[in-house]
């Protein structure tokens, strides 16, 4: 699913450097990425997702060479192939839970919002246990409910790859396990691949593989 070869990346103006000689993740795998802060875990997710690009090396997701795509194609690739789950949810305060879940369909012409999508959104919300909160705004949700909303949003486009950046970092231990279970179940049901950055070593045994990131980074800096 993911193939990275001879990747080199650095943020201009900093001495941060990320070097990954080779990394591959098979389809359907649930891979945890661990490593110290600033080691480039988020940078890796952004490179895979096409938010960042580098001409040095190769980032391939499925059959697509992400870093060779032009901007518009990269955006379309991102929205159709990748589901992002962010550490601090990144829900929009002014939208209801329902509108947050549907938001990817409203901000790009590459996706069409129709009855089937709405049914699927309802199904996901029920699966995540937030079907009764759809009319609420994020300000009236618990942390766990917010993260479940963010996961619904990430899964709604049926992404082949889910990139989770410390998706359970803001949750209490009980919620961490529940959210991770929900995420795993959804990933299995959708036949997706999961690459999740985590600092929580207690959760690692639940993943099919762990990638220790400290090995990849060279140089020092705070940009990751």
């Amino acid at each position: 699913m993911i193939r990275i070869e001879s990747l080199h990346f650095h943020y201009p103006g900093t001495d941060f450097q990320l070097a990954i000689p080779r990394l591959s993740v098979a389809a359907g795998e649930k891979v945890a990425v661990v490593g110290p802060s600033g080691s480039g875990k988020t940078t890796l997710l952004n490179l895979i997702g096409g938010i960042l690009t580098t001409g040095d090396g190769e980032v391939q997701v499925g059959e697509v060479r992400v870093n060779a795509l032009p901007d518009a194609d990269r955006r379309n690739f991102r929205i159709s192939t990748i589901g992002f789950v962010f550490q601090d949810f990144e829900l929009l305060d002014y939208l209801t839970v329902w509108d947050n879940i549907l938001h990817p369909y409203r901000i790009t012409g590459a996706l069409t919002l129709n009855g089937e999508v709405r049914d699927r959104a309802h199904g996901l919300a029920e699966q995540m246990g937030i079907a009764d909160k759809l009319r609420r705004r994020p300000g009236h949700l618990s942390q766990g409910e917010k993260q479940r909303t963010a996961i619904c949003r990430a899964l709604l486009t049926r992404p082949a790859l889910i990139l989770a950046d410390e998706a359970t970092g803001n949750l209490d231990p009980d919620n961490k396990i529940r959210i991770l279970d929900l995420l795993f179940r959804s990933v299995d049901e959708h036949g997706a691949t999961l690459l999740a950055v985590t600092h929580d070593h207690g959760l690692l045994q639940r993943f099919s593989r762990v990638v220790d990131f400290s090995a990849f980074r060279s140089g020092a800096g705070d940009a990751a």
Partner: peptide
């Protein structure tokens, strides 16, 4: 956030 989700600057 919406950029990360796949939205263009134009949107």
């Amino acid at each position: 956030t919406i950029f990360k989700l796949g939205c263009s600057r134009l949107t």
